[in-house]
């Protein structure tokens, strides 16, 4: 599985677009979670998916410290240790 920052960010973008039922291009990777309309239940759903998919345990606080998808992806790429970006 490609775990570059871009690949992870792209996957998160699609996942959030599906959750919110909005077009994928409208999900801004640099927008704060609040501006994407992600409430705490959705933030946790995203987190659980990410954990399952990339096999990392990301405490929820980290999502709130970096509350945009690019930052989450950067964090994850570093954690998986296979960052090619």
């Amino acid at each position: 599985m490609n775990s570059s920052q871009e690949a992870i960010a792209g996957w998160c973008q699609q996942y959030v677009a599906d959750l919110l039922e909005v077009p994928v291009e409208s999900v801004d990777l640099d927008a704060n979670f609040d501006r994407l309309g992600i409430d705490s239940a959705l933030a946790v759903a995203l987190l659980v998916e990410v954990e399952d998919r990339y096999g990392v345990d990301l405490p929820p606080e980290s999502l709130f410290e970096n509350p945009n998808l690019n930052a989450v992806a950067t964090h994850l790429a570093a954690l998986t240790g296979r960052d090619v970006a």
């Binding site: 801004d28 927008a31 704060n32 609040d34 994407l36 309309g37 992600i38 409430d39």
Partner: peptide, 10 residues
Amino acid sequence: AASIRAAMVR
């Protein structure tokens, strides 16, 4: 749209 969604979350 982002402003409305953000206010809803906040």
